[in-house]
Simulated assay, not measured.
Amino acid sequence: MKRSRAVSLGILGAAAFGLAACQTEEQTDAAAFSDEQSCVAAAAQSGWFTREDCAATFAEAKAVHEETAPRYESQALCEEEHGAGACGGDPAAASGGGGGSIFMPLLAGYLIGQALGGGRAMAQPVVPKAGGGFATPTGGTQLSRLNSTGKMGTTAFAKGPTTAGQPPMSRAAVASRGGFGGSAATRSVGS
């Protein structure tokens, strides 16, 4: 069974929308921040994450972004999916010495979530979407804004597939997926 997950963090909290078969997904406290400093500023008011969690999750989100962000064969194609000025070159491709350029969306911020069962805080990078808003690298979790808190399904923190070192998406590949977040937004139940 497949399902699509879209989450919008709002002023009064977070509301999760999507198809979830007949199961209810576990919810966790979550917050979206544009940078580590925003997280640190909010940590004093939070009862579930600390300044140390902010530093650790921001570092984790940066690493996950480098590994899982969507990659495109041209900057124009990347900007069609993520917005003007929202893309840059893939640093891993540039250092690899291969021919051609690969482009990926810039890290716009990150999600921090409370791990269930008292574990460490969870992290997930977010990238800009064309037309406004933000999404996780697969496009499966969408946010209307950053610097907000609420409840979110735990699948929002599932790591996407590795794209680093893979061939970049062509215009035809993006179209066949239905654009950024198209078919990549579906996850198996229990993933």
Results as ranks from 00 to 15, higher is better:
155 T>V: 13
150 G>M: 03
152 M>N: 01
151 K>E: 08
166 Q>L: 09
148 S>H: 09
153 G>D: 13
154 T>F: 12
160 G>C: 03
173 A>R: 06
148 S>Y: 09
147 N>G: 02
165 G>V: 06
157 F>P: 05
147 N>M: 02
167 P>Y: 15
150 G>S: 08
154 T>R: 14
162 T>E: 13
157 F>C: 03
176 S>V: 00
172 A>E: 02
164 A>N: 05
171 R>T: 00
156 A>W: 02
150 G>H: 07
171 R>H: 03
170 S>C: 04
166 Q>R: 11
161 P>T: 10
160 G>M: 06
175 A>K: 11
172 A>W: 01
162 T>C: 10
149 T>L: 15
175 A>H: 07
153 G>R: 07
150 G>K: 02
174 V>S: 04
166 Q>D: 11
158 A>Y: 13
155 T>P: 08
173 A>L: 11
163 T>K: 09
160 G>E: 10
149 T>C: 01
161 P>Y: 05
162 T>N: 12
150 G>I: 08
168 P>R: 08
162 T>I: 08
157 F>S: 02
153 G>A: 11
153 G>L: 07
174 V>Y: 03
150 G>C: 11
158 A>F: 10
157 F>D: 04
151 K>M: 05
166 Q>H: 11
153 G>V: 07
157 F>H: 04
149 T>Q: 15
171 R>L: 00
160 G>W: 01
176 S>P: 01
149 T>D: 13
155 T>M: 13
167 P>D: 14
159 K>V: 13
159 K>D: 09
156 A>F: 05
163 T>P: 03
154 T>Y: 13
164 A>E: 12
169 M>Q: 13
160 G>Y: 05
147 N>H: 00
146 L>N: 07
167 P>F: 10
151 K>W: 06
153 G>M: 05
173 A>G: 13
162 T>A: 10
151 K>C: 01
162 T>D: 11
148 S>D: 09
169 M>R: 11
148 S>V: 14
156 A>D: 03
152 M>T: 00
157 F>V: 05
172 A>C: 01
164 A>D: 06
173 A>I: 03
166 Q>Y: 05
154 T>L: 15
168 P>V: 10
157 F>I: 02
164 A>I: 01
171 R>P: 00
168 P>M: 06
165 G>K: 12
166 Q>V: 06
146 L>A: 11
171 R>G: 05
171 R>D: 00
150 G>V: 09
162 T>S: 12
159 K>R: 15
150 G>Y: 10
174 V>T: 04
169 M>K: 14
159 K>A: 14
156 A>I: 03
176 S>L: 02
168 P>N: 10
